[in-house]
């Protein structure tokens, strides 16, 4: 039986993510102890809330270094929503806070207005069409499908080849999937994105 470890981040709805993997008949280990990161072969960090809180949580509970080691070993990692954003260099949310920096780039607030000066409602709380860059790894090819987004900040990765997919909200380009080696991040919530979201998690399990 395939297994996945999920960091038990105490904010938000981890249950839905557990259920989504269980739906795929995957055994879930919900981990509270940072030492269990080492024992895991596949790790998911589902973050909600603020960037700084997420980083503080990881550091105060000794997860941070264990996750860095996990990246170093190139085992498959999936960061969801804020769990994706912490993969970048830093975020301006509340106060400038450094992330893991495994993906070059920063996290900034969604603008209040689009380029036509029209007010944009935030958070971006909606299903949105996934668009693909060429050369995208076909196992994550969700082109033409819709995923559920819920966020007020968004990531701007620098390296074009690390941005696998994006969405357009109003006329703002939103980073949807990033990947570097086996480290994957998605801004949307696969566990809330219906059957296509489940398919995305299934794809992650094939890495």
């Amino acid at each position: 039986m395939k297994e996945v470890s999920i960091i038990n981040y105490p904010y938000g709805n981890v249950l839905s993510l557990i259920r989504a993997f269980e739906y795929l008949k995957i055994k879930v280990n919900l981990i509270d102890n940072p030492r269990d990161v080492k024992k895991s072969n596949r790790l998911v960090f589902p973050g909600v809330g603020t960037f700084k809180n997420a980083i503080d949580f990881l550091k105060n509970n000794n997860f941070y270094e264990e996750i860095e080691n996990f990246f170093y070993l190139n085992k498959p990692f999936l960061g969801i929503c804020l769990g994706m954003q912490v993969l970048l260099d830093d975020s301006e949310e509340l106060e400038k806070t450094n992330g893991f920096g495994i993906i070059r780039g920063k996290v900034v607030k969604l603008p209040n207005k689009n380029t036509a000066n029209k007010i944009i409602k935030t958070p971006h709380m909606n299903w949105n069409l996934i668009l693909y860059n060429k050369n995208t790894n076909p196992i994550f090819n969700l082109g033409g499908r819709y995923m559920y987004f819920l966020h007020s900040y968004h990531a701007i990765p620098i390296e074009k080849n690390e941005l696998l997919a994006y969405s357009i909200y109003e006329d703002i380009k939103i980073c949807a999937i990033i990947k570097k080696r086996n480290v994957v991040g998605c801004q949307f919530h696969p566990e809330k994105s219906g059957k296509d979201g489940i398919k995305f998690l299934e794809s992650f399990m094939t890495l």
Binding site: L15, R19, E22, H189, E191, K192, G194, I198
Partner: peptide
């Protein structure tokens, strides 16, 4: 509902 419904 969380067992088989994956929308918000």
């Amino acid at each position: 509902a969380t067992k088989n419904i994956f929308v918000p």
